[in-house]
Deep mutational scan, measured.
Amino acid sequence: HNLTITQGKLFFHYNPKLCLSEIHKMEEVSGTKGRQERNDIALKTNGDQASCENELLKFSYIRTSFDKILLRWEPYWPPDFRDLLGFMLFYKEAPYQNVTEFDGQDACGSNSWTVVDIDPPLRSNDPKSQNHPGWLMRGLKPWTQYAIFVKTLVTFSDERRTYGAKSDIIYVQTDATNPSVPLDPISVSNSSSQIILKWKPPSDPNGNITHYLVFWERQAEDSELFELDYCLKGLKLPSRTWSPPFESEDSQKHNQSEYEDSAGECCSCPKTDSQILKELEESSFRKTFEDYLHNVVFVPRKTSSGTGAEDPRPSRKRRSLGDVGNVTVAVPTVAAFPNTSSTSVPTSPEEHRPFEKVVNKESLVISGLRHFTGYRIELQACNQDTPEERCSVAAYVSARTMPEAKADDIVGPVTHEIFENNVVHLMWQEPKEPNGLIVLYEVSYRRYGDEELHLCVSRKHFALERGCRLRGLSPGNYSVRIRATSLAGNGSWTEPTYFYVTDYLDVPSNIA
Rank of each mutant, 00 (worst) to 15 (best):
I209P: 11
F215V: 13
E217C: 11
E217D: 14
A220N: 10
E221F: 10
L225P: 04
E227D: 07
E227P: 10
E227W: 10
E227Y: 05
L228C: 06
D229S: 07
G234K: 06
L235T: 04
S239R: 10
S239D: 09
W242E: 09
W242R: 07
P245N: 03
E247C: 08
Q252E: 14
N255D: 08
Q256I: 13
E258F: 14
Y259D: 07
A263Y: 15
A263F: 04
A263E: 11
G264C: 04
E265L: 10
C267S: 12
S268D: 08
S268C: 15
S268Y: 04
C269S: 04
P270R: 09
T272H: 13
T272R: 12
I276D: 09
I276R: 05
L277F: 09
E279K: 02
E279C: 01
E282Y: 14
E282S: 08
R286W: 11
R286Y: 11
K287I: 07
T288V: 13
T288H: 05
F289T: 06
E290F: 15
E290A: 14
Y292Q: 04
V297P: 06
R301C: 10
T303Y: 15
S304P: 11
S305D: 06
G308H: 06
A309T: 03
A309E: 14
D311R: 10
D311G: 13
D311V: 00
R313K: 15
R313H: 00
R313T: 12
R316H: 07
R318L: 13
R318M: 05
L321Q: 15
V327W: 15
V327R: 12
T328V: 15
T328C: 08
V331N: 12
P332G: 08
T333L: 05
A335F: 13
A335N: 12
P338Q: 12
N339T: 08
T340S: 10
S341D: 04
S344L: 11
V345T: 06
S348A: 14
P349M: 10
E350L: 09
E351S: 14
R353H: 12
E356T: 14
V359W: 02
N360V: 11
K361L: 08
I366N: 00
G368Y: 05
L369K: 01
L369Y: 01
L369R: 02
F372W: 09
G374Q: 12
G374R: 09
G374K: 10
I377T: 02
I377A: 09
E378A: 10
T386A: 05
E389P: 14
A395F: 08
V397I: 01
A399L: 12
E404Q: 13
A405R: 11
K406I: 13
D408A: 02
D408I: 01
D409V: 12
T415K: 15
T415M: 13
T415L: 13
H416E: 05
I418E: 12
F419K: 05
N422S: 14
V423S: 06
V423T: 14
H425V: 12
M427K: 15
Q429T: 04
G436Y: 03
L437S: 01
V439S: 06
V439Q: 10
V439H: 09
L440A: 10
V443K: 00
R446S: 03
Y448A: 11
Y448L: 08
E452D: 12
H454R: 11
C456T: 01
K460L: 06
K460C: 06
H461L: 09
A463F: 12
A463E: 07
A463M: 10
E465A: 09
C468L: 05
C468H: 09
L470P: 01
L470D: 00
R471L: 10
R471T: 10
S474N: 09
P475G: 11
G476V: 01
G476L: 00
N477Y: 10
S479G: 03
S479Y: 03
V480F: 07
I482H: 01
I482C: 03
R483A: 04
A488Q: 06
G489D: 03
S492K: 01
W493P: 01
T494A: 04
E495L: 03
F499S: 00
Y500L: 11
Y500I: 08
Y500R: 11
D503H: 02
D503E: 09
L505E: 11
L505Y: 14
D506N: 15
P508K: 12
N510P: 12
